[in-house]
């Protein structure tokens, strides 16, 4: 894997990362870089450590070795206050939604705003309503509790909360899983629109082949505890690596590629 120099425009630089749970090593000597304004997808088989990599990058998991830089700042051994400031600059959509069950959707979205800004309560609610609308939910959803939502609506409410602080960097763990195809398409479009108008950087874990073709700039393939392929979708699908071929050469992979080529 080419060691491109950590340029000024790299938002995430991961070098020689090792993570482990007890004796089980999940990542070893993993390198991964994301440039500003890119939409990057992480793919790989189930259990290959995609969620774990995200958790290490967003300061939820202490790596065993290696270095991770976010916005040019080393996060291994970072101080508490620096971590707090850093957390304001990214948003995360968790795989299971992770909405606070005792709060309404609007209050869920308002929580990061209340913690990190000095806006008035009315302004915060106004902004929360906007984020709910951006995520594609009807306005009355704001008054509902998470348990009153369907699986797809939960995903969008979680996206609204991830967008709350208008982060420059957005992490999405399987954002379109559980969405109907129309909503999934709209989601891809929204991510691209936000990237173009806000210069957002997006790192997402996804198994959705349509999203991979439509919305991403580059795709990183996780396998054998490392990133074994990192390229735009068109190139990655031509890779000779047996794991990558197995992933994309199934009937679904081929169908999605044909579809994508027809559209383009």
């Amino acid at each position: 894997m080419a060691l491109n120099p950590a340029s000024a425009d790299a938002v995430i630089v991961v070098r020689g990362l090792q993570t482990r749970f007890g004796e089980t090593i999940i990542h070893d000597h993993l390198d991964f870089t994301v440039q500003r304004g890119e939409i990057v997808a992480l793919v790989g088989g189930s259990g290959s450590g995609k969620t774990t990599l995200l958790r290490a990058i967003i300061l939820l998991l202490q790596p065993a070795a290696g270095s991770i830089q976010l916005f040019g700042q080393e996060i291994i051994g970072i101080s508490g206050s620096a971590a707090f400031r850093l957390r304001r600059r990214f948003g995360m959509l968790f795989q299971q939604g992770a909405l606070f069950s005792s709060l309404t959707v609007r209050e869920n979205v308002a929580t990061p705003l209340q913690e990190h800004t000095r806006l008035s309560a009315r302004q915060i609610m106004d902004i929360a309503d906007l984020k709910i609308a951006l995520a594609g939910l009807p306005a009355e959803t704001g008054n509902k509790l998470p348990r009153e939502l369907s699986g797809g609506m939960l995903k969008r409410a979680a996206l609204a909360r991830a967008l709350a602080l208008d982060p420059a960097l957005l992490f999405l763990d399987e954002p379109t899983a559980g969405l109907d195809p129309v909503s999934a398409g709209a989601f891809d479009e929204l991510v691209v629109q936000l990237k173009e108008s806000l210069g957002l950087t997006v790192v997402m874990v996804t198994h959705d082949l349509d999203t991979l073709w439509q919305a991403t700039d580059r795709v990183a393939f996780l396998g054998e505890r490392r990133v074994i392929g990192y390229a735009p979708m068109r190139e990655l699908t031509r890779s000779e690596h047996p794991l990558i071929r197995a992933y994309f050469e199934g009937p679904r992979g081929r169908a999605a590629r044909e579809q994508a080529c027809k559209v383009k």
Binding site: L130, G136, P138, Q193
Partner: peptide, 15 residues
């Protein structure tokens, strides 16, 4: 984009 999203979402009052 924001204008359009706000319009499609409609409005609601805080309970």
């Amino acid at each position: 984009l924001i204008k359009e999203r706000l319009a499609t979402a409609g409005t609601t009052t805080v309970l």
